[in-house]
Design a binder for these strands. Structure first.
Lengths: 193, 193
DNA sequence: GTCTATACAAAGATAGAC
DNA sequence: GTCTATCTTTGTATAGAC
């Protein structure tokens, strides 16, 4: 999940993502992005034809970065279900520590009806990716005796995604930055085998 | 939680709230509001001096409406903890059924860093109100033997708020509209005494 | 209390020089 | 690939008539 761009195009993507996670898509402008990248406003157009095109690129990259990381975990037989789940929490924990950023897709989902349709599709894919991955991990962990729970795996996967995304949103607003860690503990305690 | 305004000022508040719940604060304009209210754009200024003033009024009213309803439940001795909790779910369920709206404060919290400071404060108060109320109800239900759970009431209150808010956000994006009801069931099953 | 008219700034986007 | 210059639209806000 590193963002250390060398070329301008990636810098634009990095800074746009950062700004959206802080303020949302509709509250940022080419001017904001250009200022932080260190170029002039119209130069962005050379890399991304429109704000919509830029927005789509940002979400797509974000979703694919997660998909790749999650698939790697699932395919690696040496990684236990519990380790995989713990690894899943780390990006949320990193976001929580920033104090001013939430998940890109939570930010976009908050203004969902004001998004271009192609951005909406990417956001939906992101959540569905995560729900499916979590369900798979929970089933795997249950089968191998790592987890012990009575809920349906699908319901528990929903609970995890909703609670984690909600926790980041709520804790940023309330400035109560221990909340995410507490939620993670509350969620995982129920998996004790 | 009814919104059937008779005067223009309340109509502006109602429509603004509705639009923010759908699209967020930064994505809406006086023009959008005026069109739906059926007046001209500058007429809004007569009722609310600025967009910020309007925004503050919308959140404040929203927060106070909830606070009043929740306090009524807490003060009414004839209402059991379980009934109070079930009543707490109904606004979320109503929102879930719209298919395109989320909690006003979740929408605002998603673009938190792009909000005027006084709107931020109102949003924070809203969440803290709900967290405190839920904790109180959980403690009460536990004492009276209505609920049976092992988590700390504060942690469970966090889980409820985060999961409910998260569920509305995620289900709107994924168009999977059974998710909120499933989350509510998942959450309440753990309270079975 | 609502309107028309307008001011002013900022938005996204394009053209064309370098 | 980045710039300056410019276009067009839209945003919030104000002035003043009715």
């Amino acid at each position: 999940m590193e963002n250390t761009a060398v070329n301008t195009k990636d810098k634009i993507l990095d800074i746009s993502q950062d700004l959206i996670q802080k303020r949302g898509f509709n509250a940022i402008s080419f001017q904001d992005i250009a200022d932080l990248v260190g170029i002039k406003k119209p130069s962005i157009t050379h890399h991304f034809a429109s704000k919509e095109v830029l927005g789509i690129a940002v979400v797509q990259r974000y979703r694919e970065t997660f998909a790749t990381a999650l698939n790697r975990l699932t395919n690696d037989e040496s990684v236990s279900a519990r380790d995989a789940l713990n690894f899943y929490f780390t990006p949320y924990q990193d976001l929580g520590e920033t104090g001013d950023k939430i998940c890109l897709c939570a930010s976009l989902a908050g203004e969902f009806m004001a998004l271009p349709i192609d951005m909406q599709k990417e956001v939906a894919l992101f959540f569905n990716d995560h729900l499916a991955w979590l369900e798979e991990i929970l089933v795997k962990g249950q089968k191998l005796g790592e987890f012990n729970f009575t809920e349906k795996p699908k319901d528990l996967a929903h609970l995890f995604v909703d609670a984690l995304q909600g926790a980041l949103i709520v804790q940023r607003a309330t400035q109560n930055f221990s909340q995410l860690d507490r939620i993670i503990r509350t969620l995982t305690v129920k998996l004790k085998s």
